[in-house]
Design a protein around this nucleic acid. Structure first.
Lengths: 291, 291
DNA sequence: AAGCGGCTTCCCATCATGTGGGAACGGGTG
DNA sequence: CACCCGTTCCCACATGATGGGAAGCCGCTT
C-alpha cells in the first residue's frame, strides 16, 4: 500500500518477503485460523470465552467463529462442558499433508539414527515463527511440539537456510531468553547464523535449557533451502566436543538419506558434489532395510 | 430462522442435528476450509484456478482465499509453478491433534492385531460424510484415506453408533454404488445399520470393491457413541464365514484395548458388564509389551 | 513470428457479510 | 438465594469480503 505510484504490477517481490500482518483481504479467515492455533500452547480443550480471551476478540465473535469451525469439522465440542477441541478435519488433513510430505518415510531413518547415536533424533519444519517437530526417533517423540527459532539448533538451521516465503529475522517476535546463554540480540543471532551457514550445522549448547546439547543439520532442496532440520539431542556428556564430528557425520548421512526420501526427484539436490567433508561414501548407511 | 414465534432460546436441539448448509454466519471461513479439503481428492498440488473450478468460485475469490491461507501457513506455494499445497500449519496442527487424540498409542495395537490375524487393521474416525483412516497396522497404511460411509464396514459402524454432532443418514450425499452389492437405498441401509447395532459389528462383503471382506467394530465411549471404528480387512478366503467369530473376537479385544488407550478415564466405558460375549478375560491379549 | 488461450495477480466500486454489543438463559459456588 | 461466569442467540450497522475486469506472463499452436 505505501507505494501506489509505481507500475501497475509489481514485477517481482522486491523486498518485504513477509509483510507480518494483514497483507490481503481476509479478516474472518485469518481470525479463524488463529483460533485453531490457540490449541497449541493452551490445553487440548478450550471454552468459547477462553478463545475470546486468547484472541482478544469479543466473545460473540469468537463464538461464531468457533461454531463455523465446528460445523466444518475443524473443531469438535464436548457435549458436557461445551468446550472445543481440534476436530476430525484437522486430523484428517494433517494426516494427508503428513503423507503428501512423505514424512512417514522419515520415522525409520530417525529411529535408526537415534539407535546408533544413543541420542534423540528429531525432524522439524518451519511453521511461521516456530520450528515444529514433525517426526522423531524416540518412542514417545515430542512430535507436534513447537520450538522457538532463535534458541534451538533446529531453529537456527531453519533460519540459516530460509525458504523463499519465510519471514526474515527482523520480522520475528522478540527473542525470549530461556537461559543465560540464549542469544537475545538480533545482531548476535545474525552472526551466529552466518557461522551456522559456514559450518553446515548448528549447535545449541544450553541455550534453551540447561544440560542439553543439540546438533542440527539441514535437509536441503535443490535451491539450497532447508526443507527440514534434523537434530540430534543429548546431554553434553554424550555429545562431547571431541565426539562432535562423529555425531555430525551420522546426522549428515541421515540428512542426505532424507533428502532422497522426502524430496521429489525434481526438487532434489544432485547427488554429485556433495563431498564437502571427507566422509567416506561407504559409511553412509549400513542396513536401511533392516526395519 | 423459520420459527421466530417460539421462545427466545431454543431449549435444546429438538431435531435438525445438522442443517447441512449455511447454519451460521461465516461465508469466507467456510469457503476457506472447503478450499483446504480440495487437496484430498485432487492431487497434492493445485493451481489457483484449479481451486476456483473445484469450488465453483470466481478465480478472484479463490485466489484471495488462497493467499490468506498462504500467509497463515495453511498453504504453501511452489515458487516455480505457483501452485499451492497444504502448508506447514496443517502438518503442525494435524500432528498436534493426532497426539491430543492419543492416536500414536494405537499404532502398536493395530500392528499387533494385523500380525495376529494376517489381515490389514485400520482405525478410522468420522469426518463429515466420510470415514477417515487415521492409523493402520500395515507398513504402508492407507492413512489419511477417506472412505464413504455407506459402503464400508468402517462407515457402517460410525453410522450405527453416531456421535451427537454427526449428521444423520438423510443428510448424507447420494449413496454411490461401487459394486452391485453396494447398498444404495437409504431404507435398506437403515435396516443394515439396525442389524449392525444388534450384532455389535459390521461386515462389508464386496460392497466397496470385489474380493475384499471387511469386519469392523466400534470403539465406544461412555455414552455409547463410536469414537472410532476398527476394521480388519482381507480376502474372503482368509475371513471365511466359519472363521468370522475368531476374527471378531480378536477385533473386539483390540477395540477394548483402544478404549483404554484412546479415551480419558472420564469418557471411558466402565470395565464391568462388558461380557456380552462369552469371551474369556484371559484371552484379551497375550504380550503387549513384547516389542 | 505473431497469435492465442490460460494462468496469475492486482485494483476497485458495490453491497452482502461478518461484526460485536447486548440480553436471555443456565448452572455452579459461596 | 443471589452472584458470577459461561454459553448462546438476536439484530442494526458499516466494515470488510466480493467478483468483474484488466494488465502482464508464459507456453503452445497456427
Amino acid at each position: 500500500m505505501p507505494d501506489p505510484t509505481s507500475g501497475v504490477h509489481r514485477p517481482a517481490a522486491v523486498d518485504v518477503p513477509s509483510p507480518a500482518r494483514a497483507p490481503a483481504g481476509a479478516q474472518a479467515v485469518r481470525r479463524a485460523l488463529d483460533l485453531l492455533h490457540c490449541f497449541h500452547d493452551n490445553g487440548p480443550d478450550l471454552s468459547a470465552s477462553d478463545l475470546a480471551r486468547r484472541l482478544e476478540l469479543p466473545v460473540s465473535t469468537a463464538h461464531r467463529l468457533a461454531r463455523t469451525l465446528l460445523t466444518a469439522g475443524f473443531l469438535e465440542q464436548d457435549f458436557r462442558t461445551s468446550r472445543y477441541r481440534l476436530g476430525p478435519s484437522v486430523t484428517e488433513l494433517g494426516r494427508l499433508s503428513y503423507h503428501q510430505r512423505g514424512l512417514h518415510l522419515a520415522a525409520p531413518e530417525l529411529a535408526d539414527l537415534a539407535e546408533r547415536t544413543g541420542a534423540t533424533a528429531d525432524l522439524a519444519l518451519r511453521s511461521g515463527p516456530y520450528a515444529v517437530i514433525v517426526a522423531g526417533g524416540s518412542v514417545t517423540p515430542k512430535v507436534g511440539l513447537r520450538r522457538p527459532l532463535h534458541s534451538t539448533a533446529l531453529g537456527k538451521v531453519l533460519l540459516a537456510w530460509p525458504r523463499p516465503g519465510d519471514a526474515a529475522l527482523d520480522a520475528l517476535p522478540p527473542l525470549h531468553a530461556f537461559t543465560e546463554r540464549t542469544i537475545v540480540e538480533r545482531d548476535a543471532l545474525r552472526a551466529e547464523l552466518a557461522r551456522v551457514r559456514e559450518d553446515g550445522h548448528a549447535l545449541n549448547d544450553g541455550e534453551s535449557a540447561h544440560g542439553v546439547r543439540t546438533l542440527a543439520v539441514p535437509v536441503l532442496d535443490r535451491a539450497g533451502h532447508a526443507r527440514f532440520a534434523l537434530a540430534v539431542r543429548a546431554t553434553p556428556e554424550l555429545i562431547t566436543t571431541a565426539a562432535l564430528p562423529w555425531f555430525l557425520e551420522r546426522a549428515r548421512a541421515c540428512a542426505r538419506a532424507l533428502e532422497v526420501l522426502l524430496l521429489a526427484p525434481g526438487e532434489r539436490r544432485e547427488e554429485e558434489a556433495d563431498a564437502r567433508e571427507g566422509v567416506s561414501p561407504a559409511s553412509c548407511r549400513t542396513g536401511p532395510g533392516s526395519r
